[in-house]
Amino acid sequence: MKVPNGPTAPNGAYRLLARALTAGVLVSASACSLPGVVRSADAPSIVPPATSATPSLTDAQASAALITQGELGGRWSATQGGATWRDGLLKTRTDAPDCQRLLDGLYAEDLLGEPTGGRAVVGLDESGNAAQLRYQVAAYAAPSEVDAKLAWLRTLPSKCAQFTSTDVRGGRLNVTVVPTVLPGVGDAREGLRLTMSGASAADAGDGSGAVPMLTLDFAAVRVGDRAVSLTNGGLGGAAQDSTQQAVQVGTQRLQDVLAGRPPTTAPASPTTGPGDPTTAPATPTTGPARPTTGPGRPTTGPGRPLTGRPTEPLAESPASTGNNTTDSTTADTTDTTDTADTADTADTAQEG
């Protein structure tokens, strides 16, 4: 019996169907490998192109917003370098964490944190009490970052009202922290005054042998995500009016720079320079003094003849008649009345 095979056989239909299915799978797989054909599961996510953020403060703007020595008065000048008391008094240790953070921040000059944008710094020295002022304009990551630092600073007059720290020689310092009042400028602000005393005399650094008393102001004002900050003080004290003036003038200057306006404040005239006179030089109320009258001296200068006869005749003694006649004739030769007096005198002599 012949067994059928080939396409006519029942199994042949199954073979044709299997070949068709296999070919479809191969075509589908090859299509996935064709260039330009990407399956949805393998498609990368669409990422928008990154845009460069415009800095909120450039270095040039920060420099333009710095205060000048003239705006604080003639006592201030460009700094001659860091004061020697910084290492001796600020680089100390204490067991209170917040107070240590305050000392470290004052020493490193970063109580507001590290700036993330433009920044500029200026240092000034004061001749009256040897104080130093360090003024900085800088941009930070966000306003909330600056506000967090200001809020922490606000707690220090209670947390660190009084504490002790130890210097590198083992000397103990008494430290106090109190709040200070600042002008109502900017978006937020905070001020502190720190005093330190009781260290060894060698920490003074000036050879005076006196135990130092450091007074140091710190002030900060936020304007958006920018801020101005300063320290002002020294062993001779800290003038609070200088701190307030720097905050007032500096904040306004920063706002002007950010708005593209010219600064509204102008450098003040030095207070130690020659002052402008408040009034014009006084005009003399009288002319040069005339010579006093006496024997042989006319009562008026040359060229100003007498205008009339004296209201009472001069009383003359016979002994002095000759001298008076000569004086009258010499001094009053241009006066006709005095000439007549001379004639009368001559007549009197003849009669005698």
Results as ranks from 00 to 15, higher is better:
Gly6Glu: 02
Asn11Glu: 13
Asn11Pro: 03
Gly12Leu: 05
Leu17Gln: 13
Ala20Pro: 00
Val27Glu: 00
Ser30Ile: 09
Gly36Ile: 04
Ala43Lys: 02
Pro49Gly: 06
Thr54Ser: 15
Pro55Gly: 07
Ala60Ile: 10
Gln61His: 08
Ala62Val: 03
Gly70Met: 05
Gly73Thr: 02
Arg75Trp: 15
Trp76Pro: 07
Trp76Glu: 14
Ser77His: 11
Thr79Arg: 07
Gln80Cys: 02
Ala83Leu: 04
Thr84Val: 07
Arg86Ser: 07
Gly88Lys: 06
Leu90Asp: 09
Arg93Cys: 02
Thr94Asn: 05
Asp95Leu: 12
Ala96Gln: 12
Cys99Thr: 03
Gln100Leu: 12
Gln100Met: 14
Ala108Glu: 12
Leu111Asp: 04
Gly113Ala: 10
Pro115Ala: 09
Gly117Gln: 15
Gly118Met: 09
Ala120Ile: 09
Leu124Thr: 04
Ser127His: 06
Ala131Trp: 11
Gln132Pro: 00
Gln136Met: 11
Ala138Gly: 08
Ala139Gln: 11
Tyr140Ser: 10
Ala148Gly: 15
Ala148His: 10
Lys149Thr: 01
Leu153Lys: 00
Arg154Gly: 13
Arg154Phe: 10
Pro157Val: 08
Lys159Glu: 15
Lys159Met: 12
Gln162Pro: 06
Thr166Ile: 12
Val168Arg: 13
Arg169Asp: 14
Gly171Tyr: 13
Leu173Glu: 00
Val178Ala: 15
Val181Glu: 14
Pro183Gly: 09
Leu192Glu: 02
Met196Gln: 15
Ser197Arg: 07
Ser197Cys: 05
Gly198Phe: 12
Ser200Met: 04
Ala202Pro: 00
Asp203Phe: 05
Asp203Lys: 01
Ala204Gly: 14
Ala204Arg: 08
Asp206Glu: 09
Gly207Val: 05
Gly207Thr: 07
Ala210Trp: 00
Ala210Ser: 11
Val211Asp: 05
Pro212Met: 02
Met213Pro: 00
Asp217Leu: 12
Asp217Ser: 11
Ala220Thr: 10
Val223Gly: 03
Asp225Gln: 14
Arg226Leu: 09
Ala227Gln: 07
Ala227Glu: 06
Ser229Asp: 13
Asn232Ile: 03
Val247Met: 05
Gln248Asp: 02
Arg253Thr: 01
Leu254Asn: 01
Gln255Lys: 01
Asp256Ser: 13
Val257Thr: 12
Pro263Thr: 13
Thr265Lys: 07
Pro267Trp: 06
Pro267Met: 06
Ala268Cys: 03
Ser269Arg: 12
Asp276Met: 14
Asp276Arg: 14
Thr278Ile: 13
Pro281Phe: 10
Pro281Arg: 06
Thr283Gly: 00
Thr285Asn: 01
Thr286Lys: 08
Gly287Pro: 03
Ala289Cys: 06
Ala289Ser: 12
Pro291Lys: 02
Gly294Tyr: 00
Pro295His: 03
Gly296Pro: 00
Pro298Met: 00
Gly301His: 01
Gly301Tyr: 01
Gly301Ala: 06
Gly303Thr: 06
Glu312Tyr: 10
Leu314Phe: 09
Pro318Thr: 06
Pro318Met: 04
Ser320Cys: 10
Ser320Arg: 15
Asn323Thr: 07
Asn324Val: 10
Asn324Ala: 09
Thr325Glu: 14
Thr326Arg: 13
Thr330Lys: 04
Thr330Gln: 09
Asp332Ser: 08
Thr337Arg: 12
Asp338Trp: 14
Thr345Lys: 01
Thr345Cys: 01
Gln350Pro: 02
